[in-house]
Design a protein around this nucleic acid. Structure first.
Lengths: 146, 146
DNA sequence: TTACTAATGAGAACAGTTCTCATTATGAAG
DNA sequence: CTTCATAATGAGAACTGTTCTCATTAGTAA
């Protein structure tokens, strides 16, 4: 099992809670680290080499999400996709293709992000809402589909 | 069947495509117009008076969404919710409670919205993406759950 | 090792959604 | 006002993504 800096961070996070960083969980993390957008359980099932069973993938996703290593993303048609949490991969937003359904990550320039933060804070305050995080989802057509 | 200005707009949109504005479809539109956030098929099933069967609700949602009267919103746990499209209810964003899962609409001040538009355009251009619309989703705790 | 518990694999069970088909309602034509 | 053609509905079966169960395997501490 490889031992990148990502692996070390994930392992630390897991071991704090006495949860093991097993081969299956590592495979999921590695696949998501290599992807350029969130993946569903089924997509991981195809991507991961050595083919984990689906039930294990679901379990790994659940565990890794509870621990804060992964973040959920709810796509169209009731599909739940996962990606590395932002503390591992950096803050980003999503470009969602209405044609093919793909989701692509995009980084955001710092000065833009601070504007978004300010807007989020003002909206939340006005609604007595306590914001934890936010996502700017842009729908349209990706370069392949347009 | 009532005949509000909303109904007239919806009916026009449907009749352009030779689709009828039936009692069931009207009930769905009315329930969504009265709600203050997107609703799932099951939630509509409870809300609508006269209890439409679920299969009809799903069909109405599909039709109304294809025609552009409704917009989808993908919530956690594979739940798809619907609300009136923005041309009918105005541009808004969502406050999503991570505790109870509720979704609340919020209007956005014009000067904020133009900032968001500019950011969306710049991100999209950089990625050769053709934006159609966007959503700023704010996750956190609603006033009831915090 | 030994013993205890976490994690896995396979498949059953579940929930939300879509599909099928027989029936009913609607609108157009005569 | 009928008759006809077809759109829409209701009920439930079928489908699909996800979760659960349970027997087995792997990992860890003593």
């Amino acid at each position: 099992m490889p031992n990148t800096s990502l692996d070390r961070e994930v392992e630390r996070r897991l071991s704090e809670r006495a949860i093991r960083y097993t081969r299956g969980r590592h495979a999921v993390v590695a696949a998501l680290a290599a992807a350029d957008g969130p993946l569903s359980a089924a997509e991981l099932h195809e991507t991961v080499e050595g083919s984990l069973p689906l039930s294990s993938i679901y379990r790994s996703l659940t565990v890794l999400e509870e621990v804060g290593v992964l973040a959920q993303h709810n796509s169209a048609k009731g599909l739940t996709r996962f990606e590395l949490a932002e503390w591992l991969k950096g803050h980003h937003h999503h470009l969602i293709c209405v044609e093919c359904g793909s989701v692509e990550d995009v980084l955001v320039a710092a000065q833009h992000e601070s504007q978004v933060d300010r807007i989020v804070d003002e909206i939340s305050r006005a609604a007595s809402f306590t914001p934890a995080n936010h996502a700017l989802e842009i729908e349209g057509r990706c370069s392949r589909c347009s």
